[in-house]
């Protein structure tokens, strides 16, 4: 990252190679489809590039990158909601936010996870998929370790309740 800040093209190549897959996973985990996730990833790289002066060598890289990614995703959500609202006004069609999602995962567990509040789902994703520590997640979400722990605990207990109920029903 520091070499990238020094304008080393090889460092940029290496960073793009290493960081793009986890970034795409992060964007792809939301209600957006693959194409939207790729657009968000490119937008995120532009933001990373524009804000690279705010990275300090003494700080961990991934929370810094996820922090930028998180704002990129929030921005995309906001734009999408605004677009959906406009579509309703102009064409007088019902809210299509969920119907629009091009990628619908049929898996039951995926469906359960998608019912969690966005903030809890995000913490769960960073913990389980990205393999980040509580401290790193707190940094990425500009939060405290205590708040992250609480979100993870709530997500886990919601899933446990819902999954237990589903299992009982299935049994």
């Amino acid at each position: 990252m520091t070499q990238y800040q020094s304008a080393d093209p090889a460092a940029l190549d290496e960073l793009v190679r290493r960081v793009s897959p986890p970034l795409l996973r992060y964007f792809n985990s939301s209600q957006f489809g693959r194409n939207d996730a790729e657009d968000m990833m490119q937008d995120c790289w532009l933001r990373i590039h524009r804000s690279r002066h705010t990275y300090r060598a003494s700080e961990p890289v991934m929370p810094w990158i996820y922090s930028v990614a998180r704002h990129t995703r929030l921005d995309a959500y906001r734009k999408r909601r605004r677009l959906a609202a406009r579509e309703v006004l102009v064409a007088n069609i019902p809210d299509t936010l969920h119907q629009d999602a091009p990628e619908v995962r049929e898996d039951d567990f995926e469906r359960l996870v998608s019912t969690l509040p966005e903030s809890q789902r995000e913490v769960l994703f960073m913990l389980k998929v990205s393999g980040m520590s509580l401290e790193e997640i707190a940094r990425a979400t500009a939060s405290t370790v205590g708040a992250v722990k609480q979100k993870a605990r709530r997500a886990y207990s919601t899933l446990r309740r819902a999954w237990g109920k589903d299992s009982k029903n299935a049994g």
């Binding site: 800040q5 020094s6 304008a7 093209p9 940029l12 190549d13 793009v16 190679r17 793009s20 897959p21 795409l24 996973r25 792809n28 985990s29 790729e38 990833m41 490119q42 790289w45 532009l46 590039h49 690279r52 002066h53 705010t54 990275y55 300090r56 060598a57 898996d107 995926e110 994703f125 998929v129």
Partner: peptide
């Protein structure tokens, strides 16, 4: 594990690099 397999295409990675390289100048950290 189902999310861990996501990979990016070489074309997409090339596009990202291409977008950033023209403005790759040394900067001073804050």
């Amino acid at each position: 594990a189902s999310h861990s397999g996501t990979q990016i295409s070489p074309e997409l990675a090339r596009r990202v690099r291409q977008n950033l390289k023209p403005s790759l100048t040394p900067i001073k950290p804050v």
